[in-house]
Design a protein around this nucleic acid. Structure first.
Lengths: 195, 195
DNA sequence: GCCCCACCATACGGCACCGTATGGGACGTG
DNA sequence: CACGTCCCATACGGTGCCGTATGGTGGGGC
């Protein structure tokens, strides 16, 4: 008989299992839900397991933030970065990113906990990384540095506003797919235009 | 000798005092900081006072959310609404609102806690109220209903994105005052233009 | 001056979570 | 098959918060 690996069974866990569960909990219940005993219950195990893999709760938070950072910056950038044409890369970026993180509440959850030092640090890094990347695209499109950055910030805040609104009052954006696409198109036309 | 009213002294408190303190705590420490015993410490009193004025913690949260709602919608709208010209009213709105709530983290704090039922409800109401108001201005400007609403949502998400970014990474918007004004001006030109 | 009542202090039980201590089971290795 | 290592279960003490019970205080009405 093979080793029982059924996800509910009594298999051994890795640190990664804890991080994954923490990531889910973070989205569902906020930072407060990244807590040892509730996660142990969710994983059908006990604290004994957790404190074998991690020093304490803070270490888990650090790990889950790092994981989120990597999932939401580098991997997305990597997925888009093989498109050579800058304009099409920009379109891909703002078409793919919402598709991947549409209902993902972690972004807004983290901003709501920006007083938390670890959260503040990761938000800082992620934001700068994203804006730098978009700015770089505008630079490749031939805009001077300051104008490229200005447009990068602009398109990024637009995206943030959509994300924010979508969680604050989802019903306000009903025909989201088509409407958002049209909105994005308008915005891109404005921002790609050289005055 | 007059009755000692020094804000540290042993004076009697009203329910409003608790709500005010809760509002401050909400901004500083998130929803979790709207907690009875910590607030009692802050007010230099005890739980005994709290449970005289409120039934429980949930009642306080309800009250503080209602207070925030009123401070951030009706009072702002009232302050702007005496301007008869719609376009100038719009400009006033997006010049005054950020001035009043620039560093105010409560907005993003609440979105981060959107799973909380009471928070979700107030965010729902506030968002719809704000968008309705802006939409109405565009209607007064002569746009048909659907176009007015589209532009209202648009300008509102832009504002939200700025707020969001300002808390996620404040240093990204350094020359905020002048830059934001220019940004807003650009946006308004776009949105006020009849194609 | 007395009393009453709005308002507060204190003490208590309960719960949820953190982190530690310690024993036990499973599995590879010899 | 013995044994050590890895990983987990259980039990415990500590902390911070919620909500209740109950007694205390001080100032306004008579």
């Amino acid at each position: 008989m093979v080793k029982e690996q059924g996800k509910g069974g009594g298999r051994r866990l890795t640190a990664q299992d804890w991080v994954d569960a923490a990531l889910t909990a973070l989205g569902e219940g906020g930072l407060a839900a990244v807590a040892v005993e509730p996660l142990a219950k969710r994983l059908k195990t006990t604290k004994g397991s957790f404190y074998w893999h991690f020093a304490n709760r803070e270490a888990l938070i650090e790990a889950v933030l790092k994981r989120w950072e990597e999932l939401n910056t580098e991997s997305v950038i990597k997925a888009v970065n093989d498109e050579p044409d800058p304009e099409r890369r920009l379109r891909n970026l703002f078409k793919e990113v919402p598709a991947a993180t549409d209902g993902d509440p972690i972004e807004v959850v983290l901003v709501g906990n920006v007083r938390h030092p670890q959260v503040a640090a990761v938000l800082q890094r992620v934001t700068e990384r994203r804006i730098d990347y978009v700015t770089q695209i505008f630079t490749e499109l031939g805009f001077p540095a300051d104008e490229a950055r200005r447009r990068g910030v602009l398109i990024y805040t637009s995206h943030l506003g959509q994300t924010h609104l979508m969680h604050a009052a989802p019903n306000v954006l009903p025909a989201s797919r088509a409407e958002r696409k049209r909105y994005l198109e308008t915005l891109l036309e404005i921002l790609l235009h050289r005055e």
